[in-house]
Amino acid sequence: MLKRKIVVVLYIALISFFCVYLFFKIQERDLIIQLNNNNLSLDAYKITLKQDISLAELDQKIKDNDKLTDVQLHYQAKDQRNVTYFYGKGNYTQPPLLSGHFFSSADFESDVPLAVVGKNYEKKLYEPKDQAYLKLDGNYLPVIGVMGDNYHSDLDDQIFIAASTQKLATAQTNDYRIVLDSLTPIDAKVLKKELGLLSATRLVKKNFIISDESWLVSHWAQVLGLFAAAVGFLAQMAVWLISLRHRYNEAVFLQADPAKFAFEEWRTYSLWVGLGTLIGGMAGMFVFQMTTYTYLLLTMGSIYLGSSLLFYLLIVSRLKKE
């Protein structure tokens, strides 16, 4: 009996460990998707203005607006898709850096342009002394940071530039693809009203059905894995229920109360399955470091509680038929 319970614990622990691994891969995939999208969130907007103004004027609109507190603007050159002129206000998601630092608020008001480059440019930088420079369009830009991570992404080939005040004053918004992202989601109607926009459309469409841009398509392998884990819980439950007949016949012979027998079986099942879930989950979280464990804990808790409740309902239903 004890040997069977130990096998159950090990089996459930293995499934739980697998669940943690799947959530780790989901977060890893989400990070790569974000890095491929210039480190922009799924709530970013592509915006167009009603009238053509300078980049300096749009930056000033953002700066003076009290409702837009933690935002970043990306001015993407139409003829150089790997070049982005960057403006930020307040707190915003910064790309991972291998060296140096990202732009400060003072850099957005400097007379000298500054650059943060992807790691694929690192070997192309000119470093006469303590300062690295990037040659771009015949000019040498001071480089203050190198972006990158352990993963390979499109961000490795990107150049972010905090443009000089002169560049901002002469460059026009109609010549750029403009993307606005916020640390907290902003409604499109609010954006259009506050900035005088012609349009504000999601950079990534949020769909409830499967499409090329849906979350489900990007994570189909992990979703199938979680489904398989749930099936694994159910399979173990089925084996436990099948083995009940012999123990129930013994209980009937000893004139045991069916309700009490059902409760004790449910309690034993929940205890050993819960122990396996806890052991496997803790082992997985020790091995795989994640940024958040909220969805993992909610999913594993739901699977455990759901299987425990289903077990109780099935065993009561089965005993009524005996």
Rank of each mutant, 00 (worst) to 15 (best):
K3D: 12
R4N: 13
L10K: 00
Y11C: 00
L14T: 01
S16V: 03
F18N: 00
F18A: 00
V20K: 02
Y21T: 01
K25G: 02
E28M: 09
R29N: 15
N36G: 01
N37Y: 02
N39Q: 09
D43V: 03
D43G: 03
A44F: 09
A44K: 07
A44M: 06
T48M: 07
K50A: 12
I53K: 07
A56G: 03
E57C: 02
L58V: 07
L58H: 04
D59S: 10
Q60V: 05
Q60I: 08
K61P: 14
K63T: 01
K63C: 00
D66M: 03
V71E: 14
Q72Y: 09
Q72S: 13
A77F: 08
A77P: 02
N82Q: 11
T84N: 10
Y87T: 06
N91M: 12
T93C: 08
L98S: 11
S99D: 15
G100M: 11
E109R: 02
D111G: 05
V112G: 03
P113G: 04
L114V: 04
V116L: 08
V117K: 07
V117P: 06
K119E: 15
K119N: 14
Y121V: 09
E122L: 05
A132F: 05
D137Y: 06
G138D: 12
L141W: 11
V143A: 07
I144C: 06
I144A: 04
M147C: 06
D149P: 06
Y151E: 15
S153V: 08
D154S: 07
L155Y: 12
Q158L: 14
S164E: 13
T165V: 13
L168Q: 12
A169D: 11
T170N: 10
A171Y: 10
Q172K: 11
Q172F: 03
T173D: 09
D175N: 05
D175S: 05
V179I: 15
S182H: 10
P185W: 10
I186W: 10
I186T: 03
K189G: 06
K189W: 11
V190K: 02
G196V: 08
L197I: 02
A200P: 04
A200W: 03
K205Q: 14
K206Q: 15
F208I: 13
V217E: 13
S218I: 01
Q222D: 00
A228Y: 00
A228D: 00
A229R: 00
A230G: 07
G232W: 02
A235I: 15
A235V: 11
A235T: 11
M237C: 08
W240G: 02
S243H: 07
S243D: 14
H246D: 12
N249K: 11
E250K: 06
F253A: 12
A256H: 13
P258A: 09
P258M: 13
P258L: 12
A262F: 05
W266K: 01
W266R: 04
R267Y: 13
L271C: 11
V273W: 01
G276N: 04
L278T: 05
G281Q: 02
M282R: 07
M282Y: 09
F286V: 08
M290W: 07
T291Q: 11
L296W: 04
L297V: 10
T299R: 04
G301P: 05
S302W: 10
I303Q: 09
Y304F: 13
S307N: 15
S308I: 03
S308G: 09
L309Q: 05
V316G: 04
V316F: 12
L319Q: 09
